[in-house]
Design a protein around this nucleic acid. Structure first.
Lengths: 152, 152
DNA sequence: CTATATGCAAATTCTTTGCAAATCG
DNA sequence: CGATTTGCAAAGAATTTGCATATAG
């Protein structure tokens, strides 16, 4: 599924080599499993659970343990390469590029994730901060809908 | 609503009797446990987990089982009286009034929840909808920060 | 060669469920 | 009273951990 939309993209924001380089530069080893996990993650536009990832990798013939999947997802989340999205009952992961702040539009039918560039609430947060006295740290915006192909 | 702030409030948006009436009108029984749970929830401005709720109620001397807490939270979520917020690792609940759509500002230090009235992204969603072809269903915006008293 | 990462299986944590007893209306 | 709700304890998910082995650098 390739979109050529102006300021929306459903490509992963980073390539696998870029993510791997990023991990390496922070001192993490690039193991076979991490390579496979990262390649899988950046090439899939739908969100997934740890279990999905484990099963799909094993179906592809990758030899990997459950603990490694959890540990790697945790690592990738801490380093900012994946984020979590809540889709109804499921708590799933999705690739997030390193290009910083953005939001997600998730198809509630197929799980496709569109990364929305730009932040529509930045201005509002300024205002909230000065009005409430809270020191704003971060925020998340998740939008759920039905993608064009699932509407058919 | 007796909020002293212009468009932010940290009161629960409903009173316990109102919530109980709402449940009754939908055909649910008003049991002692539900009454206590609802009273507790609407009178607390911080978010909480099921476990927190169970422990706090038991500390108060309320006789309630764990299953009832989960079942009641589920009921209140389905009926729109509580919502879930993710605060870092914790997945917590917070009281939500029946006044419909709003967002949360959560203190990452003490868990205090401010309910933000109005929706800063409504316009943007229209635009996304027409540009992407997604049929937007719902969205959630969560803002995390440090409340004034935790800053001290 | 040494530190890091992995796999397994057991341990934890969180949540749900079956069913008899209690309670609401 | 009859239907709904509750509590318990057991079952089920989801995730984490300990430790011996394998691998990256």
């Amino acid at each position: 599924m390739n979109s050529t939309n102006s300021n929306t993209n459903n490509h992963s924001a980073s390539t696998a080599p870029a993510v791997l380089r990023g991990l390496a530069s922070r001192g993490y080893s690039i193991t076979g499993q991490r390579r496979c996990l990262v390649e899988f993650i950046v090439s899939h536009s739908r969100h997934f659970t740890a279990e999905d990832l484990l099963n799909d990798l094993r179906d592809e013939g990758v030899k990997v343990g459950r603990a490694t999947v959890f540990r790697t997802l945790d690592l990738l989340e801490r380093t900012g390469y994946v984020g979590r999205v809540r889709d109804g009952e499921r708590m799933a992961y999705t690739a997030c590029g390193m290009e910083g702040h953005h939001h997600h539009l998730v198809c509630s039918s197929c799980g496709q994730v569109l990364h929305l560039e730009g932040c529509p609430v930045a201005g509002m947060l300024e205002e909230i901060q000065s009005r409430t006295g809270y020191r704003i740290q971060h925020h998340s915006l998740e939008v759920a809908g039905v993608c064009p192909s699932c509407q058919r």
